[in-house]
Write a protein that binds this DNA or RNA. Structure first.
Lengths: 105, 105
DNA sequence: ACATAATACATCGTAACACGAAGTATTCGT
DNA sequence: ACGAATACTTCGTGTTACGATGTATTATGT
């Protein structure tokens, strides 16, 4: 799938993936994989970006002697998802334009 | 509107704008403006990219002593729009994931 | 027993890309 | 006469997704 088309969906996807329960990198990738494929380097970049934007908080947990970073969504993160829904209407508007021009002939 | 969300739509929008009849930069921006706002620098960058990708051809026309570049869509350009429709299904799939996680509680 | 896959996170460099800013030049409205 | 509208161009910049590569442990298969 075209990279450009994914952009803008990625951040919100990750936030949605941790919305209902805290999760960690590896699991997030697995959970999203049926819907959207994301490389590890991409995910961790996104998680760092979201953390810097205060969209989520991080908590280190030791699991089988191995490190696990659990991500928890913040209020701002939830707000971001809500904003996305509004923006989606604009996206559909643009999509309508493409389809409208397509039907014209 | 978030820039990232627009990406991936832009190229196809421009192709759609010239699909039914040849058009030129300034007109394309006006035609699209109710649906998607695009700065001139963005449009001309896109037009150049699409030309390089053989998605359209360019023709210079003198109009009132002023230069006008008319853009004409190619077969490859039409194919690009068709491909977009397939990719859109994947986009909607991703959107479903976001909404699904949202409904869960 | 040994190899390979799976789990789990991190970093670096790169190329694509949208946009603001600034510029050039003509014509139209008032 | 002067500003807005028409029309295209170029430059620099910041954001970003990803491949490549690395580290380290545990589980699985043969």
């Amino acid at each position: 799938m075209d990279i450009q088309l994914k952009r803008g969906l990625l951040d919100v996807c990750v936030l949605s993936a941790i919305k209902n329960e805290d999760s960690y990198g590896y699991k997030i990738i697995k959970d999203m994989s049926p819907y959207i494929v994301m490389s590890e380097s991409t995910l961790y970049t996104i998680l760092k970006r979201l953390e810097l934007g205060n969209m989520l908080t991080v908590r280190n947990v030791e699991h089988n002697g191995r490190l696990r970073k659990y991500y928890h969504i913040t209020k701002a993160g939830l707000g971001r998802i809500e904003d996305f829904k509004d923006e989606w209407r604009e996206v559909m508007n643009i999509y309508q334009f493409v389809m409208k021009e397509d039907k014209k002939r």
